[in-house]
Design a protein around this nucleic acid. Structure first.
Lengths: 135, 135
DNA sequence: CTTATCCCTAGTTAGCCGATAGGGATAGTA
DNA sequence: TACTATCCCTATCGGCTAACTAGGGATAAG
């Protein structure tokens, strides 16, 4: 199956970075692109889409950048995924499998609602603080 | 998100048709293509893949065709979907979202294991026998 | 007025999905 | 043997989309 697109993953990672900032603080595209290793121009277009969708706001000029509009506690990856990868609206020739297909799609999306950006951030922090004995 | 491919749906429908036959009975590609409205040559390649995967067997010549290897009761769409749309093996740069992505993928595939081909066949029969008052 | 930032429109490129072309091999039937 | 219905194989093609790039324009702060 197709899974999640690169673009959508970039969007999630950019938003996760913004989630780590203090409320109202902004971060520039070049900074995010560098930290997250995302192609600059591509990120530009993604951030604009995120703005249109209402997830972030922006200010131009020096010291400008993007900031999160929503509270990371009440903001789930699912909301983003649904905007960036809209459901397939089932193949026109609906057959005996379309119900299964629809349910599968729903199950897929639902996974992204199970935690907030804050949760992801917390988990990331835990991972980084735990020493790695795997080698 | 991407959802299921046409090819995979064709495969499912072809197998469903074979599921409706008596055990061991074969059906030809032209017949399946006509009944299911699937492009002939495309179906040909799909049936070959289904054979390689071990889902069907075939005989050539007159009165030949494809037949189901497995029992429709113990054969789920999931087994087919997994062969035709192999899991994405997560994007190489595993990030904090890869766990969620993997779980979403699993949830998607799992939906296709919830019933057997026999079940789908049964549901289809019910639908066709119930008169449609929706218009 | 300079610089750092966001904003916009339009490409380009590679890969894949869906489908097709054109035959070859094989198994029954007469 | 010849005929025909079937499966078997390889190669190819068009169109679409995802991913990314180019080249600037608008704006805000100092």
């Amino acid at each position: 199956m197709a899974g999640i697109s690169n673009k959508c993953l970039y969007a999630l990672r950019a938003l996760l970075e913004l989630s780590g900032l203090e409320r109202g603080q902004a971060r520039s595209i070049p900074a995010i692109a560098k930290n997250q290793d995302i192609p600059l121009k591509f990120l530009e277009s993604i951030m604009r889409e995120l703005k249109e969708a209402g997830f972030v706001s922006s200010t131009r000029g020096k010291e400008g950048g993007y900031r999160l509009v929503l509270n990371p506690n009440e903001f789930s990856p699912g909301q983003v995924v649904r905007t960036f990868q809209p459901p397939n609206s089932l193949p026109s020739t609906s057959c005996c499998f379309s119900q299964i297909v629809n349910e599968a799609e729903k199950a897929w999306f639902d996974q992204f609602d199970k935690c907030s950006f804050r949760d992801v951030l917390r988990k990331k922090a835990e991972q980084n603080s735990v020493p790695d004995f795997s080698i």
